[in-house]
Design a binder for these strands. Structure first.
Lengths: 135, 135
DNA sequence: CCCATAAAGTTGCATATACAACTTCATGGG
DNA sequence: CCCATGAAGTTGTATATGCAACTTTATGGG
């Protein structure tokens, strides 16, 4: 392996696609994507969180976040005050709990599969790149 | 760091977004996205490569690949025999060469920034996850 | 109190990506 | 030779994402 042909961004993107697929598969039974499940779990953990805060945490452009939460509201998971902090509906709360259960099992499984050293490596990469660690 | 709150897929996705942004910035001067530049460079290296092969290498669904190459052809970078192997036009070839120069410099810079151990960690992750190593 | 400014959010437009269903095409059996 | 089959590619539909431009809202000076 040398710098001549190992594309760091390309490899990250491929890995992200593959892992997204695996996590998406686990959440299809609940009718949510992994991205949506992640937002549900974050809003569950931090009720009233702002779109701008999530944008910074996840490094997603604010326009994308705006559309994500609009879609989630249309699905009945968020109350309608999207501009004044995000709150789960009853349905959203129950869904978030089910998603967390699924996530926990899958994440543990993947953790076991790749091993703690590999996860530590990923974490190290994060720390090197995401200087502005909002979270 | 423990398994309770460290989401592997989420972290990968955030990293991929951030790195994609950095690579995209480098390629805007050429009017291409990083994804397009990557395809250009691969087709340059393997003239006549099939969409299906690229799909497997990059773990991108074939429908997405189909649209990617259609767009690249519309931009004048690919000849029109998309179903019988992909070939760069004269313009595409020149662009691919310029992209490679940009890529090489940026990838080296990122490599230096994160350090060889971090890249090795990423590579280890790849090897654990991407069992079907077409490439 | 009013306005300038900036932050937050939305919308228009484009690319990236996936799944499902369909079409096209090559190939091996009969 | 013809058809069944499967691989490759395309298209419909939906989500995910970014940039630019715009709107809304909060806030601090004057």
């Amino acid at each position: 392996m040398n710098t001549e042909n190992y594309c760091i961004a390309g490899r990250l993107r491929t890995l992200a696609r593959v892992m997204t697929g695996r996590y998406n598969d686990a959440f299809t039974q609940e009718g949510v994507t992994f991205a949506q499940a992640g937002l549900l779990m974050r809003i569950f953990a931090q009720p009233g969180i702002r779109q701008a805060t999530l944008s910074k945490q996840l490094q997603i452009e604010k326009s994308g976040m705006s559309r994500d939460v609009q879609l989630m509201q249309k699905k009945g998971w968020l109350t309608d005050n999207l501009r004044n902090g995000l709150f789960l509906t009853e349905e959203g709360t129950l869904l978030a709990k089910r998603c967390h259960k699924i996530w926990k099992a899958l994440n543990y499984q993947v953790w076991e599969e790749v091993g703690p050293d590999t996860v530590a490596g990923l974490s190290a990469f994060s720390n090197k790149i995401l200087t502005t660690n909002t979270q």
